[in-house]
Amino acid sequence: MTLLEAPARESTGGGLASAARNRLQQLLAFASLIVICGFFSVASRYFFTYGNFTAILFSTVVIGTLAIGTTFVIISGGIDLSIGTGMALCAVMSGVFLVDLGLPLALGVPAAILFGGLIGLVNGINVSVFKIPPFIATLAMMLVAGGLALVLSDSAPIYFTDVEGYVELSTGSLLPGVEFPNAVLVLLGAALVAGVLLTKTVLGRYTYSMGSNEEATALSGINVRKWKIAIYAFAGLFIGLAGVMISARLGSAQPATGMGYELQAIAAVVIGGTSLSGGKGSIVGTLIGALIISVLNNGLQIMSIPQEWQNVILGCVILVAVYADMLRKKET
């Protein structure tokens, strides 16, 4: 309601203008996603099919989940490099809980997700209490998690063959009547929860606030240290979720995987308009960013573009996305 009153006041109407601008930017990202899809639809007759669209969504699940979690960290002005190998560690932990310890699904899966939160908690404490720069703290965690994943799994994949219903978490189809993988529902659910938390809760508000001006936030009487730990720990839950989703899809926990996922997730976040210097970003944007990456990967492969060129094109897209964002910033 205040929004409606605003113009009546003798103000610049800045609220409406900036809200409109934010919306425009998201529209722009969404529009480029549509344009890319349109291009591939014309270029290949195999692209525009229901089966291929679900395949694209399916392939977005793991990176998308990681990217959603790390959006919080990046908006708060930090960075998390441990999400890739952390995910592998959580996948292994899921194997440990469900296969080695034989816990029931309803216990083992939450435990694996919480283990991700634990990884995030340690990151948060290192960054916030011990004042280790996030880049270094999470780089170290990346190595620790990658090594632990190998140790705990004896360097061999853990198979979930005997765990009833685990693979269905990802590949099953809960929606009646249509072929729609559960994993995509999980991703959308996670995005919804994250979106609500980011825009509607205190945690989200302080995430923006710290990324925007940490010192001012502290001077406003907010316990920056505590909230920073909370943000990393919360983002860690998504590491755990991604670990569950990747191992459910593959039917196995691959201990050596995960390296490089962090960079793809960060790329998705950046393409989605989140600023690496903090203070700005959205879950919808991140989701669109992750989708742009998946669509490009999928479309270029379907067009039979040689693999060497696929990375070149992906890199160019990231450059353009970030450059456009900088142009936008210069305007204000």
Binding site: F39, M303, I305, V312, I313, C316, V317, V320, A321
Partner: peptide, 26 residues
């Protein structure tokens, strides 16, 4: 206009690359 220009330029780069890449295959 500049913003849209940047977006178009990017798209053009991507598509050109896609086109030369796909030349032999398709």
């Amino acid at each position: 206009a500049r913003k849209i220009g940047a977006a178009l330029a990017g798209a053009a780069v991507a598509l050109t690359l896609a086109a030369c890449g796909s030349g032999d295959a398709s």
